[in-house]
Amino acid sequence: MSIQHFRVALIPFFAAFCLPVFAHPETLVKVKDAEDQLGARVGYIELDLNSGKILESFRPEERFPMMSTFKVLLCGAVLSRVDAGQEQLGRRIHYSQNDLVEYSPVTEKHLTDGMTVRELCSAAITMSDNTAANLLLTTIGGPKELTAFLHNMGDHVTRLDRWEPELNEAIPNDERDTTMPAAMATTLRKLLTGELLTLASRQQLIDWMEADKVAGPLLRSALPAGWFIADKSGAGERGSRGIIAALGPDGKPSRIVVIYTTGSQATMDERNRQIAEIGASLIKHW
């Protein structure tokens, strides 16, 4: 067993022997301040990774656009098919120029040779490549099948209805392509620590998230040296922004954090800054 596999296998073990965790309302004060600064709703939840206990939450059962955070769930569904012998990570998928959609920095470079399922998941999570996500959605049967996968996990809230990039439209009061912070946090925890996926697939999923290259201005910008984070960000229309993450000190994750916002007129930089400040408060009061 590799060191990384050992780390993920012992996530519940280490967490069980940690000192009790206590909620700190100071972080919620910052979440509410972010709402004021952005002029928009902000949803927040913080779960203990081992027990699933909610440590703090704000608007945990209000719907927010998922945006690209759905790509972690998508690759979880792909990995479940791999575990069941219905898919192979090494299978190569070929596609054409007509398949390319807006923001496809990886797939646009491989029109000639195609990409493997493993490479597509890596591109979808680490670079948020939209064509990679659409190609992977095709392998599982489309958005409705991802929703069905989530329902089978016990998540009857999260739903995907459309493809990239239309799913980022974020129309107010439109339930399409949305989740709730509580539902997303619980589902992410199941994917990373539950028995739904094999140990190898859980490790692969967290490795992809740990290698995320496009979430630097968010929670990662607030992390002290030595902290662990595996995350996936999302951005959408109407001032929408979000991030889902597993993080913790001492090089291992111990909490799940989900943050979503929508309806702001603020710039992307300002949305990023507010999420980073929430992260800084979380870490300060850990």
Rank of each mutant, 00 (worst) to 15 (best):
P224F: 02
A245M: 05
Q274S: 12
I275Y: 15
L89R: 04
L28V: 12
L146N: 00
E164Y: 02
V257A: 14
G236D: 05
R238T: 10
R118F: 09
I206R: 09
A235V: 06
T147M: 07
T193Y: 10
N98A: 07
W286A: 02
E56Q: 07
R59L: 04
G242P: 00
T147G: 07
V258F: 02
A170C: 06
H151W: 09
L47Q: 08
A124H: 02
Q265K: 08
D161V: 09
A245N: 00
R81H: 09
T69M: 03
G142D: 13
D99T: 07
S122D: 15
I244S: 04
N50W: 12
R220Y: 02
R202M: 11
D269C: 14
D231A: 12
A215K: 05
D36E: 15
W227R: 00
E102C: 05
G236P: 00
T139M: 15
F228Y: 06
S128V: 02
I244T: 15
Q86V: 14
A183K: 15
V117M: 12
M180S: 13
G114M: 04
G141K: 15
P105Q: 12
R273H: 06
G194I: 05
A225R: 09
L47N: 03
W208Y: 12
A182R: 10
K213T: 05
H94S: 09
S57L: 09
P253M: 12
D231I: 04
R189F: 15
V258T: 07
R202S: 13
D83K: 05
T126N: 11
L150N: 15
V117H: 03
L100H: 05
H285P: 02
G239P: 00
A77L: 07
D48E: 05
W208T: 03
G39K: 08
S240M: 04
K284N: 06
L146P: 01
G251Y: 06
E237L: 12
P105L: 12
N272V: 04
L28T: 10
S128L: 02
L73H: 12
L89E: 08
Q274L: 12
E166M: 13
A182C: 08
L100Y: 07
L55Y: 10
A77Y: 12
N130P: 02
I45S: 15
D207I: 10
A276Q: 10
S233W: 00
L136K: 01
H110G: 12
I93L: 06
L223W: 03
M153A: 07
E26G: 15
P25I: 11
I259H: 00
L49K: 04
A225P: 10
I244E: 00
P165A: 07
L49V: 14
N173Q: 09
E102L: 08
L223F: 05
T138V: 13
T147A: 07
E26R: 12
A280D: 15
K232T: 01
S68G: 00
V78C: 06
D269L: 13
R59N: 15
A40T: 11
L196S: 09
S68C: 03
A215N: 05
S221N: 14
E166L: 12
L197P: 04
T158F: 07
L146E: 02
M115T: 04
R238N: 07
A183Q: 14
I243D: 02
R220A: 04
S221M: 15
R189D: 06
R159M: 12
S122I: 07
C121R: 02
Y44N: 00
E175Y: 13
R241P: 02
A77V: 08
G85A: 07
K53Y: 14
Q37K: 08
D269P: 13
L191W: 05
K30A: 08
T27K: 05
Y260V: 11
R176D: 07
E270M: 05
M67F: 04
R41S: 14
G85Q: 07
K190Q: 15
